[in-house]
């Protein structure tokens, strides 16, 4: 055991290993340098704060997605949960329900939708991809029914200071959603890396059979993890609704892609069992800088999609390479 460090040092250089450890960080820095050189206004503090606020929505969803992907699963319904829980919250605020309560109920519904995903996957033995694709469609449809296809908005929302503050406010010069992101990042980090729940999450993704024999309650874990993903999506949904001062029926469309991209760019293996919460935070920042930078550079949204798709593809290919090595 004495020569452990030596072994580490002499290990053959492997790109997969390297990317896993430092790659996301390096990619983020390179991207920031590139964008700042191309457009100086990127480094404007106002722009940076704005960027962080934009990132917070995707980051929150991605934290939940990290748990899901670590188990070897995937959650495609997060974007639809953003929309439906946001619509609930908006409707409650309009109905005069106290702001805090409206927000909490919205988040709770998100958690419930997540739990339903979990039950279908755990007890129905359904493939997560198909199960959440189905619930995505159902929840999106329900959002259209609930909103009758129109944005939910009104003066009761736009004049409600507390509700507005949640997504638009500033505290000590920093957007409030950034605090929410930071708090949930710390919670997610501790949960994943410092608790037995986190250890069991990794075990479940690494080898579900061995985990079960070692006493992990696989079904319970899966339900809890999808519940977390649903809950965090609803928190993101509340921020989004507050920022827009309205609940859009197509809010959160394709957000699952950005969240999955953040997780994969952060070095988490799609096969499950391997990844870090910090990587996912970095991954979300990469996506954020990419979006923000392309806007600043005036790249049309059509091209933006292509670029983002390519970036995700590269990340997935890196993941594959890692799996083989």
């Amino acid at each position: 055991m004495s020569n452990q460090t030596e072994v580490e040092a002499k290990k053959k250089f492997s790109f997969g290993d390297f990317y896993k450890k430092l790659g996301p960080m390096v990619a983020l820095i390179v991207l920031i340098v590139l964008v700042s050189v191309l457009n100086f206004s990127f480094l404007d503090p106002l722009n940076l704060l704005n960027l962080l606020r934009q990132v917070s929505v995707n980051a929150l969803i991605a934290f939940g997605m990290e748990f899901v992907i670590l188990t070897g699963g995937i959650d495609l319904s997060v974007g639809a949960i953003v929309a439906l829980s946001g619509a609930f919250t908006a409707q409650l605020v309009l109905a005069g329900v106290p702001t805090i309560l409206s927000l909490l109920i919205g988040m709770l519904t998100g958690a419930i939708f997540g739990a339903i995903n979990g039950v279908i996957i755990a007890y129905g033995k359904a493939a997560p991809f198909i199960a959440t694709l189905a619930t995505q469609t159902i929840l999106r449809g329900a959002t259209y029914v609930f909103t009758k296809g129109n944005p939910i908005t009104g003066t009761k929302m736009s004049n409600n200071f507390g509700f507005q503050f949640f997504g638009q406010g500033y505290l000590f010069g920093i957007p409030f959603p950034v605090y929410i992101m930071a708090i949930f990042y710390i919670c997610a980090f501790i949960l994943l890396h410092r608790t037995t729940f986190g250890r069991k999450t990794y075990a479940l993704g690494g080898n579900p059979k061995a985990a079960f024999v070692a006493g992990v309650k696989n079904n319970k874990m899966i339900i809890l993890i999808y519940t977390i993903a649903g809950f965090l999506s609803a928190v993101a949904g509340a921020i989004l609704t507050s920022r827009l001062a309205s609940a859009q029926p197509d809010a959160g469309n394709a957000y699952e892609m950005d969240a999955i991209a953040a997780v994969v760019l952060g070095g988490t293996s799609l096969a499950g069992g391997k990844g870090r919460m910090f990587g996912t935070l970095i991954g979300a920042l990469i996506i954020g800088v990419l979006n923000n930078g392309m806007n600043l550079l005036g790249i049309s949204s059509f091209y933006q999609q292509i670029v983002k798709g390519i970036v995700i593809l590269v990340a997935v290919l890196l993941d594959r390479k890692q799996a083989k090595a």
Partner: peptide, 25 residues
């Protein structure tokens, strides 16, 4: 075994609850 997990993560899995207070390891 979880083949691509560390020896530590394999060995302590059935006992991990005993090393935690309120879930914190």
């Amino acid at each position: 075994l979880i083949l691509d997990a560390t020896l530590a993560d394999n060995i302590d899995l059935p006992s991990i609850d005993g090393f935690s207070k309120h879930g914190l390891i």
